[in-house]
Design a protein around this nucleic acid. Structure first.
Length: 883
RNA sequence: GGGCGUUUAACUCAGUUGGUAGAGUGCUACCUCGACAAGGUAGAAGUCAUUGGUUCGAGUCCAAUAUCGCCCACCA
């Protein structure tokens, strides 16, 4: 007898303990090992101050499954963890904190603020890592990285300088997306467009020295203050006579020209557009084309500046209100219409974006996008599911230059210095002493920092020691697969690809697996504002990490959103409990000295061969599905095998041997039970690492922990087709007998003889040899063979099988009418099947064109159904005659 | 405006080379038999959104329509 497990599965008893055990023994560690092939996954670094949510739980579970599977398959598997400094969001939170303490950034100064930020980071930065550990992630913590670490910063600086030297980074006055609340520029990717219902105002601009006027349409009347022209389409007949004239800006009386530009849509609005180059991206371009210059009227906090005359000091939306009032009061307002349009919001704080002219740093995207597109077109980059490749292509083909400078302090400061005497711009790895051009030492470093995504774009190689050509880099790069959410393709996937091609000369990964969103049970996106987020840690606390992991990866397919139900987690917890109890059963029937030896194939009984053969197939199916990133299907295969094949059938079939007197048979059953259970735990380990390791540690004859054990392989010698056929026949027969008894409402405890009338020697042997299956699983008191049906009248239930018929003497328990009804139903079913099969086989096209195997299959089915049909009809006739 | 996706049992979803529709939950009936009631046995439940097409054969491939949803976009 072996040490047994507690009666109920209680994950809290061992999950934390096992995680510590793995971690302390350095089983997650990956080292350069040229005897093995490397397998590398880079964890998308979560925000250092963030908390674990279901999205993290999902994609980290997938990464862990792949890592554990490959590790067991003999690869040197590196899963690289780390965190992201998340410049804008962390800075905002630190600002909140100091604001509460009555301090401001300006008071603290850059160094003081950064000190606060580091303290904050050290205080909260560990959280998410500990939360991930609860999930069971087997990443190599000894390699933990943070995007602001010295070596990571070195990589950032190196890339900046290389791109600058190549002319791919430039500084310029451009129209950018400005968030007045975050007080920084942001990139196009960080702007979220939302449809909003608003108004469009038609405003009359008088024409100078004339009684005429021109009516423009605008959704942003406050920008009238910054107008530098009015544009019409050159083909527009309506305004031909006005082109070249001067219009007078209402309220401020500034003079602006009327120009033509193809950009103007004849159909839209009034066909006349006010041009505000400093506050609208389109107008900026029109302004460039016509040399209109700039006239900034809204400042960085979103207030009207001194160029706004009497409106100076008004907040932008206050100004809009006031200006509309004034326009109306002075008779300039022609019309107000309802209007829907899409308005850009800051991705982080939802503030409406203000397009502003500003001096910022940009990455020139076209030369970088080109090879990234080529790699995709050449098929070197695969998306799972494939359709996301189009999203990638679409973004890259329409890409605009990337604004990388941020007016923030928490981040990588640009390695840029300005000479205040001659305005020279110096980009340097080291702090320069004096200006190379004029020799002045009046230098100051750029105060801006880089977009967070600039550093995470380098993650696949910066974490491995780049720009040094380290052994790690040579061995583990490029990585194998990236697993992340589809919402992050633009921010991160694209940028890693072009950065890697540019710096490393190759792609950072071959495959990109994109997960869907985890939604709440009503299908809503989990969000802070709705307060409908489900905390993974709470779920783990109640059901265990294994159940949560299994829930997240089953019942859905890659890239599709899923709903989260507690009932689903509960079902998977129940599955864990099922395996737990199957293990208890095996352990309590195991003699350690017996299972110390292996079994010989020649000794195996039919059900042993059957379960081993099934296991063999399942091994292949699980592996093949993992290979294809069909994680959910892989998990489903092993789930079904454990519950249906192993627990419901094999264990039940083998019980009589375990309790019987045949020592050889008994010991063999023990060995096979253990053998299959071990492979089950191996196959299930990547999905449910905790319970499987815990069980494993209780099983005899282990050489080491499960996490380091060998992934099972398909084995030709373990394919037993004949045994599969036999057991399938037995299972079908048992189910048919159970069904018939249930239909007659006969309790399982009410046992009866089963007398088989068989039609072939093969079936006869099968029944004789398989007697014990029926004794155990079909409530049989005894099983016998009869040569004829003679004498089996209405005192018997008849169960029609393929090539045999079973008779159950249940005299007093049989309801005659019900039995007739049951057989009629059976007949109807067979009629349906026969109609279908015959229809197919009588179809000329089918017989001449379908593959032979398919035709033969149908023929076999027809023979089987006809055989059974004959018996049902005969039985019905004889019953009715008897009555 | 462009692109993409969803539509399968009461609910949530699988269904990958086209060959008799599956799971979990829920529901019905029965079962405290020595792994498990977080269980067992049996069962009911689907014109696979609609309409065409390709094919011997379509949930699966193609087209159109409807539906709900997502992404992108410089409609002032």
């Amino acid at each position: 007898m072996l040490e047994n497990l507690p009666k109920t599965y209680n994950p809290k008893d061992f999950e934390d303990r096992l995680y510590d055990y793995w971690n302390k023994n350095e089983y997650f560690a990956a080292k350069v090992n040229h005897d093995k092939k490397p397998y590398t996954i880079m964890m998308p670094p979560p925000n250092v101050t963030g908390n674990l949510h279901m999205g993290h739980a999902l994609n980290n579970t997938i990464q862990d499954i792949l890592t554990r599977w490959k590790r067991m398959s003999g690869y040197e598997a590196l899963w690289q963890p780390g965190t992201d400094h998340a410049s804008i969001s962390t800075e905002a939170r630190v600002v909140d904190k100091i604001t509460k303490e009555g301090k401001t950034k300006e008071e603290l100064g850059r160094d003081g603020f950064l000190k606060e930020a580091w303290e904050w980071t050290e205080l909260y930065g560990g959280n998410i890592k500990n939360q991930l550990k609860k999930l069971g992630v087997s990443c190599d913590w000894s390699r933990d990285r943070f995007t602001l670490d010295d070596n990571m910063s070195k990589a950032v600086e190196e890339v900046f300088i290389r791109l600058y030297d190549k002319g791919l980074i430039y500084r310029g006055d451009r129209i950018i997306n400005w968030c007045p609340d975050c007080a920084t520029a942001i990139s196009d990717a960080e702007v979220e467009h939302e449809d909003s219902h608003g108004h469009i105002w038609h405003v009359d601009y008088p024409i100078k020295d004339s009684q005429e006027k021109i009516t423009i349409a605008t959704t942003r009347p406050e920008t009238i203050l910054g107008d530098l022209a009015i544009a019409v389409n050159p083909k527009d007949e309506r305004y031909k006579n006005l082109v070249g004239k001067i219009a007078i800006l209402p309220l401020v009386n500034r003079e602006i020209p009327i120009i033509t530009d193809d950009y103007v849509d004849l159909e839209f609005g009034t066909g006349a557009v006010k041009i505000t180059p400093s506050h609208d991206a389109n107008d900026f371009e029109v302004g460039e084309r016509h040399g209109l210059g700039q006239f900034i009227v809204i400042d960085e906090k979103g207030y009207i500046n001194s160029n706004g005359g009497k409106y100076e000091g008004l907040e932008r939306f206050e100004a809009r209100k006031k200006i509309v009032e004034d326009l109306e009061a002075n008779g300039f307002l022609n019309e107000i219409k309802e209007h829907d349009n899409s308005v850009g919001h800051c991705e982080r704080c939802s503030t409406i974006i203000e397009p502003l002219i500003s001096k910022q740093w940009f990455v020139k995207m076209e030369p970088l996008a080109k090879p990234a597109l080529e790699a995709y077109y050449k098929g070197e980059l695969n998306f799972v599911p494939e359709r996301f490749g189009k999203v990638y292509v679409n973004w890259l083909e329409n890409i605009r230059d990337w604004c990388i400078s941020r007016q923030l302090w928490w981040g990588h400061r640009l390695p840029v210095y300005y000479c205040d005497d001659c305005n020279e711009v110096i980009v340097s790895r080291t702090t320069p002493d004096k200006c190379g051009k004029c020799g002045s030492d009046n230098l100051r470093q750029e105060t801006d920092t880089l977009d967070t995504w600039f550093s995470s774009a380098l993650w696949p190689f910066s974490t491995l020691g780049w720009p040094e050509n380290t052994e790690d880099l040579k061995y583990f790069f490029p990585t194998d697969v990236l697993i992340t959410g589809y919402d992050i393709i633009f921010f991160w996937v694209v940028r890693m690809v072009f950065s890697s091609i540019e710096q490393m000369g190759e792609l950072p990964f071959k495959d990109v697996y994109l997960t869907g969103l985890v939604r709440d049970s009503q299908g809503r996106k989990m969000s802070k504002s709705l307060d409908n987020g489900i905390d993974p840690l709470e779920i783990i606390d109640i059901y265990g990490a294994d159940a949560l992991r299994f829930t997240l990866i089953t019942g859905n397919s890659p890239g599709n959103d899923m709903r989260f139900y507690n009932e689903k987690v509960e079902a998977n917890r129940n599955f864990a409990n099922k395996l737990w109890n199957a293990t208890r059963f095996v352990l309590m029937n195991l003699d350690e000295e017996v299972v110390a030896n292996d079994f010989e194939i020649k000794d195996l009984e039919q059900e042993d061969k059957w379960i081993i053969s099934r296991l063999n197939d399942v091994t292949k199916e699980v592996t093949d599905n993992l290979d294809k990133y069909e994680i959910g299907l892989a998990a489903q295969r092993i789930y079904d095998f454990v519950w249906d094949d192993y627990c419901d059938w094999y264990i039940e079939m083998v019980k009589s041997r375990l309790y019987g007197d045949d020592t050889n048979s008994k010991e063999l059953a023990q060995r096979v039970l253990l053998y299959v259970l071990k492979d089950i735990n191996r196959l299930l380990h990547p999905f449910m690492p905790f319970i499987t390791e815990e069980i494993w540690q209780h099983l005899p004859n282990n050489d080491g922990p499960l996490i380091l054990s060998q992934w099972p392989l398909y084995n030709d010698r373990h394919k037993f087709s004949q045994a599969e056929k036999i057991i399938e026949y037995v299972k079908t027969s048992i189910k048919a007998i159970r069904n018939a008894r249930a239909e007659m409402n006969i309790a399982p405890s009410k046992k009866s003889n089963i007398i088989f009338v068989v039609e072939s020697e093969e079936i006869k042997d099968l029944i004789v040899n398989g007697k014990r299956y029926f004794l155990n699983l079909a409530s049989a008191e005894d099983v016998s063979i009869s040569d004829s049906k003679e004498g089996f009248g209405e005192d018997y239930i008849s169960v029609v099988l393929e090539k045999s018929e079973a008779f159950l003497p249940l005299k007093d328990l049989i309801d005659y009418d019900k039995e007739i009804e049951r057989l009629e139903k059976e007949k109807e079913k067979l009629e349906g099947e026969l109609k279908r099969v015959k229809g197919k086989l009588s179809n000329e096209g089918f017989v001449s064109k379908a593959p032979e195997a398919v035709i033969n299959g149908e023929k076999e089915k027809m023979a089987k159904y006809e055989d059974m049909m004959d018996k049902v009809i005969e039985r019905l006739a004889s019953l009715k005659k008897d009555k």
